[in-house]
């Protein structure tokens, strides 16, 4: 398990690089690595922009279903007020392209997100080696 605190913009790149590295070690191909790394970049950027700090945890997944990688991106920020709306393409409160969350969902094999007002947001993405 690897843990990367997100306190500055360059920490996002570090979390992304570590995701790629972990996936590479698991035997993931380039396309899947890039897609997952980009999903992590989207989520970590969200945490950094909306909560100024957060954390990324990278874990290996094992078991009968095969091996995989799970990345958790969390922050203690204001939370996402309307999660349903935030999952719609083109919705942005920060002047960005507004594809971050729905994009991350499309890039990962599994995606889940939980957000509590004034407590923060936790997003989990998974990629499976098939």
């Amino acid at each position: 398990m690897m843990y990367v605190p997100i306190d500055a913009e360059e920490d996002i790149a570090r979390a992304v690089a570590m995701t790629e590295e972990a996936m590479s070690a698991e035997g993931f191909g380039l396309t899947q690595r890039r897609m997952m790394a980009t999903a992590v970049s989207e989520l970590a950027t969200n945490a950094y922009v909306h909560a100024t700090k957060g954390a990324v945890t990278i874990a290996r997944l094992g078991g009968t279903g095969g091996s995989g990688i799970e990345v958790t991106v969390e922050d203690q920020g204001p939370g996402i007020k309307d999660l349903e709306q935030a999952m719609v393409d083109g919705y942005s409160t920060a002047g960005s392209l507004g594809v971050g969350l729905p994009g991350a969902q499309r890039l990962a094999d599994e995606f889940s997100i939980h957000s509590t007002a004034d407590k923060g947001t936790v997003a989990v993405v998974r990629a499976w080696l098939v």
């Binding site: 396309t31 890039r34 897609m35 989207e42 393409d89 594809v99 994009g103 499309r106 890039l107």
Partner: peptide, 13 residues
């Protein structure tokens, strides 16, 4: 690159 192209399309950019 092919990986970036796929990612851009999937992201919806």
């Amino acid at each position: 690159s092919p990986e970036v192209a796929v990612t851009l399309v999937e992201l919806g950019i």
